[in-house]
């Protein structure tokens, strides 16, 4: 996972997450949309065969006073909490 910031302002972030695909990006997007302070979150990824930008680009827009990088970190934390509680529920069953 290589990160490259393409554009960053106080409330907007565009970042390339190299080496990832829909598997993780869609989970991350889903988590970000449920994170407090996030106004919009999406990602764009092109198919392997397109020959252009094939690594996904995450776009996050936050509400005033929330740093988008912090929001991404918060989203990543909530994914870890989710996977932990899934593991517990699955092993208990």
């Amino acid at each position: 996972m290589e990160l490259r910031v393409i554009e960053k302002t106080d409330e907007e972030l565009r970042i390339e997450i190299a080496g990832e695909d829909h598997t993780f990006m869609n989970v991350l997007k889903g988590a970000l949309l449920e994170t407090e302070g996030v106004a919009a979150a999406t990602y764009d990824v092109n198919p392997e065969q397109s020959g252009g930008q094939t690594d996904p680009i995450l776009s996050v827009k936050t509400e005033a006073g929330v740093d988008p990088l912090d929001a991404v970190a918060e989203g990543a934390r909530s994914i870890q909490a989710m996977t932990d509680s899934f593991r517990d529920a699955f092993t208990a069953a």
């Binding site: 990160l3 997450i17 991350l28 970190a73 990543a76 994914i79 932990d84």
Partner: peptide
């Protein structure tokens, strides 16, 4: 069981890596 738990773990590990890198 192993397959499911490893798959979920791999998602968690990637989230942990992302969290570390953006921090």
């Amino acid at each position: 069981e192993e397959l499911v738990l490893r798959a979920v773990e791999s998602l968690g590990l990637r989230a942990a890596e992302l969290e570390e890198k953006v921090s």
